[in-house]
Amino acid sequence: MSATAVAEPPELKKLSGPQRAAALLLVLGRDHGGPIWESLSTEEVKELSSAMSQLGRVPAAVADHLLVRFSGEVSSMASLHGSFETTERLLGDLLPADRVKEVMEDIRGPSGRTMWDKLSNVGEGLLAGYLKNEHPQTVAVILAKLRPDHSARVLSELSREFAVEVITRMLRMDTVQKDVLQEVERTLKTEFMSNIARSQRRDPHETMADLFNAMDRSTEEAMLSALEQSAPESAERIRSLMFTFEDLTKLLPPAIAAVVKAADKKVMALALKGASEEQRAVFLAAMTERAGNLLKEEIAGMGPVRARDCEDAQSVLVRLAKNLADQGQIMLVDPKSDDAVIV
Score class of each variant (00 low, 15 high):
residue 80 L to V: 07
residue 189 K to S: 08
residue 148 P to L: 09
residue 140 A to D: 01
residue 74 V to Y: 08
residue 331 M to H: 07
residue 185 E to F: 00
residue 143 L to K: 00
residue 168 T to N: 13
residue 283 F to D: 03
residue 48 L to E: 02
residue 232 P to S: 11
residue 214 A to S: 14
residue 201 R to C: 06
residue 301 G to Y: 15
residue 159 S to D: 14
residue 96 P to K: 05
residue 179 D to I: 11
residue 123 G to D: 13
residue 133 N to P: 00
residue 151 S to T: 05
residue 93 D to L: 14
residue 2 S to H: 15
residue 78 A to Y: 12
residue 279 Q to D: 12
residue 222 A to T: 10
residue 268 M to S: 15
residue 14 K to C: 12
residue 80 L to M: 04
residue 277 E to H: 11
residue 340 A to H: 13
residue 11 E to W: 05
residue 319 R to I: 04
residue 326 D to A: 10
residue 339 D to V: 00
residue 167 I to R: 12
residue 276 S to I: 07
residue 328 G to A: 02
residue 114 T to D: 10
residue 177 Q to P: 03
residue 7 A to R: 15
residue 159 S to E: 15
residue 2 S to I: 09
residue 170 M to T: 01
residue 124 E to L: 05
residue 228 E to Y: 07
residue 260 V to W: 12
residue 147 R to M: 10
residue 54 Q to T: 07
residue 338 D to K: 15
residue 112 G to K: 03
residue 316 V to G: 03
residue 283 F to E: 00
residue 152 A to K: 13
residue 232 P to E: 11
residue 16 S to N: 08
residue 184 V to F: 09
residue 287 M to A: 13
residue 149 D to Y: 10
residue 83 S to T: 13
residue 100 V to Q: 06
residue 227 L to Q: 02
residue 58 V to L: 12
residue 155 L to Q: 01
residue 11 E to L: 07
residue 87 T to Y: 06
residue 25 L to P: 01
residue 334 D to Q: 11
residue 148 P to A: 12
residue 320 L to T: 02
residue 218 S to R: 11
residue 173 M to P: 11
residue 305 V to C: 03
residue 150 H to N: 11
residue 102 E to Y: 14
residue 140 A to H: 03
residue 154 V to K: 00
residue 321 A to N: 03
residue 225 S to I: 05
residue 179 D to L: 10
residue 209 A to H: 05
residue 173 M to F: 07
residue 97 A to W: 13
residue 219 T to V: 08
residue 325 A to S: 14
residue 14 K to G: 07
residue 88 E to Y: 10
residue 43 E to H: 08
residue 60 A to Y: 13
residue 122 V to A: 06
residue 199 S to L: 15
residue 297 E to S: 10
residue 88 E to G: 01
residue 309 D to R: 14
residue 343 V to T: 12
residue 24 L to Y: 08
residue 236 E to A: 12
residue 211 L to I: 15
residue 278 E to R: 15
residue 275 A to V: 14
residue 211 L to K: 11
residue 88 E to D: 04
residue 169 R to M: 02
residue 218 S to W: 04
residue 277 E to W: 11
residue 41 S to Q: 01
residue 134 E to M: 15
residue 26 L to C: 07
residue 111 S to Q: 15
residue 203 D to R: 15
residue 202 R to P: 02
residue 240 S to L: 09
residue 43 E to R: 05
residue 341 V to F: 07
residue 328 G to R: 07
residue 332 L to Q: 00
residue 157 E to Y: 04
residue 118 K to E: 06
residue 50 S to N: 05
residue 45 V to M: 08
residue 285 A to M: 11
residue 40 L to W: 00
residue 27 V to S: 09
residue 237 R to Y: 10
residue 15 L to P: 01
residue 215 M to D: 01
residue 67 L to G: 03
residue 194 S to I: 02
residue 145 K to T: 01
residue 157 E to Q: 12
residue 208 M to H: 01
residue 272 L to A: 08
residue 87 T to N: 05
residue 120 S to P: 09
residue 286 A to N: 06
residue 219 T to Y: 13
residue 340 A to Y: 02
residue 221 E to C: 04
residue 125 G to L: 07
residue 330 I to V: 10
residue 285 A to T: 09
residue 155 L to V: 02
